[in-house]
């Protein structure tokens, strides 16, 4: 008798993802789909796709999907959630979308305690447009718009999103995870599951920041890129729970 140990989650669409080989967006997509499946909420979930590499996310999930203007996903999610408070609404956003052009929408959705789930992919670069500096690019990081390395004196400092949002009372749950190794992927899964549960229990905004790889724009092999998450990103962006106001029930 064969027992299925690992298969495709139902709410992940049966299509090839548009991401580059080794890009860990795909892992996070799968984790989101697994969480939706496990909670049995596909039929009442509305996902919001951003602008950036994950712009096509509306094709990758089986729930109803909306494609939002760049950075505006939390505002769009607010509109959906306020219209349909009993549905589950999540945004899936990259660092440029969430922490540069959409900073205001992010911060204010968080401040309002908007009862939504935000999946935030931090890969410290603009992937879709070809490797430009992101709000989360590290000091010294070479990108096409910081060709001599990001100089905080010139280009400013990166934003630590979870730390910043944790100061806002409306944020029920903020955790930074990574998808660099199986153990951390499993931890990320738990965090994403909790972020959805937080919303279902009406506790406020939940955000999971995922340190994710961009082998293509980092100029590294997929395996080297995972190593770079560990050696370069994690010291600047420590993993962990930054705020948990869920009272433990959501776990």
């Amino acid at each position: 008798m064969a027992e299925l140990v690992f298969g495709r989650p139902k709410s992940l669409s049966d299509v090839t993802l548009s991401y580059c080989p080794g890009c860990t967006h795909g892992i996070v997509h799968r984790l989101v789909a697994e969480a939706i499946d496990e909670l049995g909420i596909e039929g009442k979930t509305i996902g919001i796709a951003p602008v950036g590499c994950s712009v096509f996310a509306y094709n990758f999930f089986e729930c109803d999907m909306i494609q939002a203007p760049h950075g505006r996903a939390p505002a769009v999610a607010t509109g959906v959630k306020r219209a349909l408070p009993d549905r589950v609404v999540f945004t899936y956003q990259g660092d440029g979308d969430l922490a540069a052009i959409g900073t205001a929408e992010t911060v204010h959705a968080a401040a309002r305690g908007e009862n939504i789930t935000i999946i935030f992919i931090n890969n410290a670069i603009y992937g879709m447009t070809g490797g430009q500096m992101a709000p989360t690019s590290l000091p010294g990081q070479v990108t096409t718009t910081s060709p001599y390395g990001r100089n905080p004196k010139i280009q400013g400092n990166p934003i630590r999103v979870c730390e910043m949002l944790a100061t806002l009372d409306g944020v029920a749950y903020a955790e930074r995870v990574a998808v660099d190794c199986p153990k951390n992927v499993l931890r990320a899964k738990k965090a994403i599951l909790k972020a959805f549960k937080t919303q279902i229990e009406g506790k406020g905004l939940a955000i999971v920041e995922v340190l994710s790889s961009c082998p293509t724009q980092w100029g590294k092999s997929p395996a080297e890129a995972l190593e770079w998450i560990r050696t370069a990103m994690m010291p600047y962006y420590p993993l962990g729970v930054y705020v948990d106001r869920t009272g433990g029930d959501a776990e």
Binding site: I48, R72, A75, V76, G79, V80, R82, A104, E105, H108
Partner: peptide, 21 residues
Amino acid sequence: LQAESEIAAINMVLGAAAAGA
């Protein structure tokens, strides 16, 4: 709902309209 900006307000409208409201 008083939005944080005109940009946010119109995108909330987008979301609510998408939700059929």
